[in-house]
């Protein structure tokens, strides 16, 4: 039962993470990524046998009990060590992404990536997030859906400064 619940939880977390990543907007992206890392960490947790037991720390008393007891009644410590490492790493990466998103936000005043911006402009999607505080740069006409990848389309220092000040 525990194993089934764990598997279900991992699945739900994966689904939610994937859904959030596919949404428009970078904050959702960050949240989705953290959900995905949690899902993987839980899956790792499930790889250890889920037994109740003493903490797997060998003190002087337990050392004398012998190897047989050591291996039967103790929880497997390795998945915890792996998860801790994975958490540390995902913490670092998530911090990095948040910093990038923040910088992006400061530069454009928008939660959207330029590619997404191009879609918004070209299709005039009524459901697109298009807040009024975001003034389009003068180069908005250049946001061709095929061209948006070109750096110079959005490396306009002057229009960026304008947007950033808005």
């Amino acid at each position: 039962m525990t194993a089934f619940m764990l598997a279900l939880l991992v699945g739900v977390l994966f689904a939610c993470g994937a859904y959030l990543i596919l949404q428009r907007g970078q904050i959702k992206l960050v949240l989705g990524l953290s959900l995905l890392t949690h899902a993987v960490n839980l899956a790792l947790f499930g790889t250890g046998t889920l037994t109740r037991g003493a903490p797997p720390i060998v003190s002087e008393e337990t050392e004398s009990l012998g190897a047989a007891i050591l291996f039967t009644s103790y929880a497997d410590p390795l998945p915890q060590a792996l998860i801790l490492t994975a958490i540390v790493i995902s913490f670092g990466v998530t911090a990095f992404i948040v910093a990038l998103v923040f910088r992006r936000d400061a530069l454009t005043g928008s939660d959207l990536l330029p590619g997404e911006l191009a879609a918004v402009i070209n299709t005039s999607d009524p459901f697109a997030e298009f807040s009024l505080r975001m003034k389009l740069p003068d180069a908005a006409d250049d946001y061709d859906i095929l061209q948006y990848e070109l750096d110079e389309v959005y490396d306009h220092p002057e229009s960026e400064a304008e947007v950033a000040h808005e």
């Binding site: 670092g92 911090a95 948040v98 910093a99 923040f102 910088r103 400061a106």
Partner: peptide, 17 residues
């Protein structure tokens, strides 16, 4: 070192905003 670099960067940006 790393956590504080990150926290300071974010706090500065938040304060500027």
């Amino acid at each position: 070192g790393m956590a504080l670099t990150y926290l300071l960067r974010l706090s500065e940006a938040a304060e500027a905003t």
